[in-house]
Computed example of a mutant assay.
Amino acid sequence: MKKEIELKMRGEIKRLTNKTFKFDERVREGWFSAVYFLKTKAIAEKYKRDELVTMQFFQKTHAVLCGTDEVIALIKTFAANPEELEIHSLEDGNKIEPFETVLTITGPYQNFGFLEGIIDGIFARRTSVATNVYNVVKAARKSGIQKPVIFMGDRDDHFTQQAGDGYAAYIGGSKAQATHAMHEWWGKKGIGTMPHALIQLFNGDLVAATRAYQETFPEDDLMALVDYNNDVITDSLKVARVFKDELKGVRIDTSNSMVDQFFCRNPEVMGSFDPRGVNPALIFALRDALDLEGFQHVKILASGGFTAERIEEYESQQVPVDMYGVGSSLLKIHIGFTGDNVKINGEHEAKSGRRYRPNPRLEYIEHE
Rank of each mutant, 00 (worst) to 15 (best):
M1T: 15
T17Q: 08
N18T: 13
T20C: 09
F23C: 11
G30F: 10
W31K: 14
V35Y: 10
Y36K: 14
F37P: 01
K39S: 12
K41I: 07
A44S: 14
K48G: 08
M55T: 15
Q59T: 15
G67V: 09
V71H: 01
K76P: 00
F99R: 13
T101V: 04
G107V: 12
Y109W: 10
Y109V: 07
Q110P: 00
I122R: 00
F123I: 03
F123L: 15
R126K: 14
Y134E: 05
V136H: 01
V137E: 01
V137Y: 00
V137N: 01
A140F: 04
R141C: 11
R141G: 02
K142A: 11
S143V: 06
P148G: 06
G153M: 05
D156Q: 04
F159E: 14
T160D: 13
A163M: 11
D165T: 14
D165Y: 02
D165G: 03
D165C: 03
A169L: 10
G173M: 08
T179A: 12
W186R: 10
W186P: 05
G187V: 06
G192V: 08
P195Y: 03
P195W: 08
H196E: 07
I199C: 06
I199V: 15
N203E: 09
G204C: 08
D205S: 10
L206A: 07
A212S: 13
P218T: 08
E219Y: 10
V226R: 01
Y228D: 04
D235K: 07
D235Y: 09
V239G: 03
R241H: 12
E246Q: 15
L247W: 01
G249L: 02
R251T: 14
T254S: 13
N256D: 03
N256G: 13
S257T: 11
M258E: 11
Q261S: 07
V269I: 07
F273C: 04
D274C: 07
P275H: 06
P275L: 08
F284I: 13
D288M: 03
D291F: 02
G294F: 06
G294D: 12
G294P: 09
F295K: 08
S303W: 01
G304A: 07
S316L: 09
V321Y: 03
V326T: 09
S328H: 13
S329E: 08
S329V: 12
I335K: 06
G346Q: 08
H348F: 09
K351H: 10
S352G: 05
Y356T: 04
R357V: 09
I365L: 06
